[in-house]
Design a protein around this nucleic acid. Structure first.
Lengths: 232, 232
DNA sequence: GTCTATAGCCGGATAGAC
DNA sequence: GTCTATCCGGCTATAGAC
């Protein structure tokens, strides 16, 4: 929605080209909105709250986006692109120990760096994905089907034990995103006020080693993994 | 809040004993509220919606619970008890392959049978656990500490590989509850309108085998586990 | 204990001056 | 393009008849 491509589409349709100010304000609004939606969810989030977070008067928001829902949709569109990019490393010219470890690390990095994005997405799906349901049924489903075929290839070559690749994705998504979405619970149990970088490193190595060993692959790239799985 | 103990407390404090009608209506309201809060979250849920779901006029709700928040808290209290009960099987007179498999199956059974409870809990934690944060920091944290000690004992006896028991809990919770909380995403990817019993069985065996193998234990009780590792 | 009517507030959206 | 003032609908909560 904010990409050059989208701008060109609008221009082709005869709408005015976006000025620099407009682009900057729209981006600022979306950043603010992501924070507010993450904290409050869609309905408890207020235009006032977003406006304050963005440092603009409320009615200015309505100038750039017609409705609150339009802002929400734009935020989700940004997130979806971010979310699926890491799957790129899952390709059948790679070894699963390498590819899966990279994938999990990339997902966990996103979780650590963009927790608000994760929470907005979680909230949307938790309430039935009213806005992005179609996207999930089309693009996400097709993507998972492709990647599942790659994993089936690895299994056929004996590089990992037989398992259901689709459920493997569910588990990886859940295990990584829980550190953003359920942050409050994780902090409560760990006795932290907020998660440190060290916490995230520990969490990452935990998930990587559990999943790799769970899949029956144990050479996870540059050494780091074996530390966790050595005995036994 | 609805237990006999709570009633007695109130009586001791001089408040009127709960009549049968009152108990039934309160229970009906809480059941309805769980569904509505699960679908909409706290703020988008309306007293009107809960009243309709419960088959009562709106103002009747205010007779039994002073505020919407009071209903919400009562719903959460019920859920918390439900949620922690399955940890009971994690005791050091059991073998991890047995105990962990039972625990995961119990959690997944709850997820399948009480998805709304899971979603209300998820929504609460996702938004920073404003109501149950104290409970999580005290009771949940203490419980996890105890159970982590049990798992450390299993590791010391060589019954499973060394890993961080606390993060293991995070992973198990995430991997099981995702089938309720992210139900919309799971359905979209699987191409289902809603998850069948067979889907849940498959998911359960997937999580059990991934976690047990990931923990380096492979004798999971009465045989059932090994089936999951067979070809698809 | 139940229900109707309504008070009172809040938030999204808009009109229109600058 | 920006901002103030305001409308309007919907929500929680309560008052008070039955």
């Amino acid at each position: 929605m904010n990409t050059p491509a989208a701008v060109d589409t609008k221009r082709a349709a005869g709408l005015p080209r976006k000025g620099r100010i407009r682009q900057e304000h729209e981006a600022g609004i979306l950043r603010a909105a992501e924070r507010v939606f993450a904290r409050a969810g869609f309905s408890a989030a207020t235009m006032n709250g977003i406006a304050q977070e963005a440092g603009l008067p409320k009615s200015n928001l309505h100038y750039y986006f017609r409705t609150k829902q339009a802002i929400y949709r734009a935020v989700l569109t940004n997130i979806l692109q971010l979310w699926l990019a890491p799957t790129e490393v899952i390709r059948d010219d790679r070894h699963p120990g390498d590819a899966l470890a990279h994938y999990i690390r990339a997902k966990m990095k996103l979780t650590a760096e963009r927790p608000d994005a994760s929470r907005v997405f979680a909230n949307e799906v938790l309430h039935g994905a009213p806005e992005i349901g179609g996207y999930l049924r089309r693009e996400l489903r097709a993507l998972v089907r492709d990647k599942a075929r790659v994993i089936d290839g690895w299994i056929a070559r004996g590089w990992m034990r037989p398992l259901d690749p689709v459920h493997l994705f569910f588990t990886i998504w859940a295990a990584t995103q829980t550190y953003a979405d359920f942050d409050a619970q994780v902090c409560a149990v760990l006795g932290r006020r907020q998660l440190t970088e060290a916490d995230f490193e520990r969490a990452t190595e935990h998930v990587v080693s559990l999943v790799l060993q769970g899949c029956g692959v144990m050479n996870g790239g540059p050494g780091a993994l074996l530390a966790a799985g050595s005995p036994r």
